[in-house]
Design a protein around this nucleic acid. Structure first.
Lengths: 115, 115
DNA sequence: CCAATATGTCACCATCTTGTTACCCATGAG
DNA sequence: CTCATGGGTAACAAGATGGTGACATATTGG
């Protein structure tokens, strides 16, 4: 899976309030079962399982099956990738350029300062 | 729009390599036009415009129309929200809990240390 | 005015996503 | 064994998404 694909999977996984809630739940209840998570949702168990699958595919959840019970664990590493790659790349930009962008946007309205 | 909806829109907008590329392009060429962005894509102009619309709805792009040209500007503020809310909340967790999680995951295999 | 340019809108289509129900498999308690 | 429990798979329906071409609008240049 390419970097782009992983980024897609990660952002896609996070672009769903139910899945974000699952993350919160698993984070709050490390090692909880699939059934435990389902108790907090009105949707069917299968829907929850699918969302767990999406989160797992994105690497945000880790599961291990013991007997017939599947224990879930939160993994923040992929989010850290966002932090490292995106916020670093863009935040340095924000700090210096965002104000400048606003300036340029304003400048556009004044011909004499047009870029 | 609720906080959840805005978060959905933001992550959804970012969960598309083409849209992320548009962000990079606009970031590199502040004030560029829609047509400028289109030059970098094989897809149709309409597809690019729709993706610009998605990015704009997520607040990641700001546009202003002067004459018949629409100038695009990158806005990192929404990503900063991710940074502030998500990475703060989760990164503090990673630092302290991830190792602990791994421990608990291992512990699950040993009955005497079962949580 | 006339034509080229830059963008916006519309209707349509293929595919993906998200949920559903029904059914199957494995495990643990009795 | 018997059976409830926890989980997994398959097939399907509704809606969202991402793309398209055709057409409309508005501005600029000559």
């Amino acid at each position: 899976m390419s970097e782009e694909d992983r980024t897609d999977a990660l952002f896609h996984a996070l672009a769903h309030s139910g899945r974000r809630r699952i993350l919160d739940l698993v984070k709050a209840m490390p090692g909880c079962s699939v059934g435990d998570v389902c108790k907090y949702f009105d949707t069917s168990r299968i829907a929850v399982m699918k969302n767990i699958g999406v989160l797992e595919a994105a690497g945000l959840l880790i599961s291990e099956k013991t007997g017939r019970v599947r224990s879930l664990h939160f993994n923040g590493a992929p989010i850290q990738l966002i932090y490292d790659r995106w916020t670093t790349e863009y935040s340095s930009y924000w700090g210096t350029q965002v104000t400048d962008l606003k300036f340029k946007a304003e400048a556009k309205k004044r011909p004499e300062t047009d870029a």
